[in-house]
């Protein structure tokens, strides 16, 4: 089957039931999306499907169809992506770093939806992304910093 990932078309031979996460990791060697729970509970595997965040551990690859898949490796291609990455780097958000691909993908989606999220909005949007190292205070800060930079960038 054909799969468009990070703006590149791939031809993949896989059981359509195989979760997108494992196709990304094993077949396409894109190792940025992570396996955390396999049950939609942690968000480590979050990727965008046509700009919408999904848990790739629960998404059968056969259900992806024409939708464009965006992973952490190409999140900078999203309108808010670079702002998020810059804020994450500046505040040195990661500890172990394992959850951060999912966090960044979710945050990028949030800033696409909501240019100026407040703490409550951030908590609601990011609730599905667990950080076992609890970098949550810096995640909140980074999202606000990215929103600010995005606001300025668009005004300019």
């Amino acid at each position: 089957m054909d799969l468009t990932v990070n703006r590149v078309k791939h031809s993949v031979t896989a059981d359509p039931e195989k979760p997108l996460l494992w196709v990304l990791r094993e077949d396409l060697h894109l190792l940025g999306a992570k396996f955390g729970c396999g049950a939609g509970l942690c968000g480590a595997c979050t990727v965008l499907l046509d700009g919408q965040p999904v848990r790739s551990c629960l998404t059968p690859v056969g259900a992806v169809g024409e939708a464009a898949v965006t992973t952490i490796e190409d999140v900078a291609s999203q309108p808010a992506g670079q702002y998020v990455l810059d804020a994450w780097a500046d505040l040195d958000v990661p500890q172990c770093g394992y959850c951060q691909a999912g966090q960044i993908v979710s945050a990028t989606w949030l800033l696409g939806q909501m240019p100026d999220p407040q703490d409550e909005d951030i908590d609601a949007a990011m609730s599905g992304n667990i950080c076992r190292c609890s970098t949550y205070l810096r995640i909140r800060k980074a999202i606000k910093a990215a929103a600010k930079a995005q606001g300025k960038g668009e005004a300019a």
């Binding site: 060697h29 894109l30 190792l31 940025g32 999306a33 992570k34 396996f35 992973t71 952490i72 490796e73 990455l85 994450w88 780097a89 040195d92 958000v93 990661p94 770093g97 394992y98 951060q100 691909a101 960044i104």
Partner: peptide
């Protein structure tokens, strides 16, 4: 800042589970 932070943000394979 963490020396691996840039690689983490790029989704580079750093972790044990990423070994290929």
């Amino acid at each position: 800042r963490g020396v691996d932070t840039p690689a983490i943000l790029q989704g580079k394979p750093l972790f044990g589970i990423d070994t290929e």
